[in-house]
Design a protein around this nucleic acid. Structure first.
Lengths: 153, 153
DNA sequence: TCGGATCGGTCTCGAAATGGAACCACTGGG
DNA sequence: CCCAGTGGTTCCATTTCGAGACCGATCCGA
């Protein structure tokens, strides 16, 4: 009963992690971004057990990250990314950048290229200042109390 | 025995997730970035059981994400971020951006301000093209076979 | 109309991970 | 010496998970 209470923490890192910070959920989303939509397709791609996949997909639908739809003219169900789910992509790309740097000794297995970019550019996650635009690391950051923590009364 | 095999997948999203894609590891790192270094401090901050914390810290040390050091002139142990661990920060910031957008109805509980920035800027994760610099979403990306997947022979 | 195949979904049971608490070893200070 | 604080380990009850069987609905071809 202790872990779930973390969802109440006023922290925008902790709260998402309670939703998708487990073995499978981000992997499910990774395949969702690569076009997988059907229950059985997730199952065979991941090697996850059916009951677990059922549970995780249900949770993602609950949180409006995936949407479940019947496919017209078919018995299939489809799980598609919602806009909220679509916005998880930068998280996966940040993980990938780290993985390419530290866990890909032979170089990146997959290159995520910018479609129609003349310079053959690649997508990369970058931490930057929204005011001056300069790149940032952990050392350049000072946490401050935000509006979500103003105490009422 | 199935899940651990995912570490062999040639995917820079999957491989990091096998290391820190569980309930606690990214939360441990979140506190590490906020200055927590001692075993007991992690334990009381997180409410994780001692044996689990022991296991997770050990794994992070194994992967050279944290480094364990004896503090001179004290009986304490310290777990400090290595450069490799330091580079996990953009992942946490990407999660935070999503959390601020979708799980912080009263606004961000914490603001991550750019130290010494004249414009009072904040740190934000941005997915962009490394060639043309324009912002990107999942729809702008085309995955391609990378050098890490060139088959030998 | 009748199987058979496919699919999403559920159930059960043994295995693995987890949490909680006790216990141990080491250190430093009275 | 004892005692408190720390990191680390071990044990056990609970929870979560994986594997496979099972169910109902749908579709298709015989």
């Amino acid at each position: 009963m202790r872990y779930e209470d973390l969802a109440d923490e006023p922290c925008s890192i902790t709260r998402p992690l309670v939703v998708f910070g487990d073995r499978w959920t981000l992997l499910i989303l990774k395949y969702a971004f690569s076009g997988v939509r059907r229950f059985s397709a997730f199952q065979s791609a991941l090697g996850i057990s059916r009951s677990r996949l059922q549970d995780r997909l249900g949770r993602l639908v609950e949180h409006d990250i995936l949407a479940k739809q019947k496919v017209a003219g078919s018995a299939h169900e489809e799980y598609r990314l919602t806009p909220k789910g679509h916005d998880v992509y930068p998280i996966l790309m940040a993980i990938r950048d780290w993985g390419d740097t530290y866990m890909a000794p032979d170089g990146p297995p997959v290159v995520y290229r910018h479609r129609d970019c003349e310079g053959d550019g690649e997508a990369h996650s970058r931490l930057e200042c929204d005011a001056c635009g300069s790149p940032m690391t952990a050392r350049d950051v000072t946490p401050e109390l935000g509006p979500g923590l103003r105490l009422p009364g």
